[in-house]
Simulated assay, not measured.
Amino acid sequence: MTMIRKASIMFVNKDSYEEYQKRHDDIWPEMLKELKAHGAHNYSIFLDKESGRLFAYLEIESEEKWKQMGETEICKKWWAYMKPLMDTNPDNSPVSIELSEVFYMA
């Protein structure tokens, strides 16, 4: 199976770094289950403590399957849970800037 590599930038509030980390350390098992069910693999999030920028990287099985993740009840619940810690859109999804791949070395 060929995986699609995705990367994006999100923004966490500077006073919320520890709580953001804690919530991901204790991520709900049902959230992990849905991520995997929607084709997510090798999902990582990195923090730039100077700016509050988050760099997210994951591999997905298909764009269509991945887009359905945001429509699940558990994802909507997670977004609402994370809203106080980060920049969000009106639907509580994180403000996210998708990055274009310019280089890849297998």
Rank of each mutant, 00 (worst) to 15 (best):
Met1Pro: 09
Ile4Leu: 04
Ile4Ala: 02
Ile9Gly: 04
Met10Cys: 13
Phe11Trp: 14
Phe11Glu: 12
Val12Met: 06
Val12Thr: 06
Asp15Cys: 14
Ser16Asp: 00
Tyr17Glu: 02
Glu18Asp: 11
Glu19Ala: 09
Tyr20Pro: 02
Gln21Cys: 11
Arg23Glu: 07
Arg23Tyr: 08
His24Ser: 05
Asp26Trp: 00
Asp26Thr: 10
Asp26Tyr: 10
Asp26Asn: 13
Ile27Pro: 03
Trp28Asn: 06
Glu30Arg: 12
Met31Trp: 13
Met31Ala: 15
Leu32Gln: 08
Leu32Ser: 03
Leu32Lys: 09
Lys33Phe: 07
Glu34Ala: 15
Glu34Gln: 11
Lys36His: 05
Ala37His: 12
Gly39His: 02
Gly39Thr: 05
Gly39Phe: 03
Asn42Gly: 13
Asn42Val: 03
Ile45Gln: 01
Ile45Thr: 08
Ile45Glu: 00
Ile45Trp: 06
Phe46Ser: 12
Phe46His: 15
Leu47Ala: 05
Asp48Pro: 05
Lys49Pro: 00
Lys49Ser: 04
Ser51Lys: 13
Gly52Trp: 07
Arg53Asp: 09
Arg53Thr: 11
Leu54Met: 13
Leu54His: 04
Leu54Thr: 06
Ile60Glu: 02
Ile60Tyr: 05
Glu63Arg: 06
Glu63Gln: 15
Glu63Ser: 08
Lys65Thr: 15
Gln68Leu: 09
Met69Lys: 04
Glu71Lys: 13
Glu73Thr: 00
Glu73Trp: 07
Glu73Asp: 14
Lys77Ala: 08
Trp78Met: 09
Trp79Arg: 09
Met82Asn: 05
Lys83Ile: 02
Pro84Glu: 00
Met86Tyr: 01
Met86Ile: 00
Pro90Glu: 01
Pro90Ala: 03
Asp91Val: 00
Asn92Asp: 15
Ser93Asp: 05
Ser93Trp: 04
Ser93Ile: 02
Ser93Lys: 07
Val95Asn: 07
Val95Lys: 09
Ser96Phe: 10
Ser96Met: 14
Ile97Ala: 12
Leu99Arg: 05
Glu101His: 11
Phe103Arg: 01
Phe103Gly: 11
Ala106Cys: 07
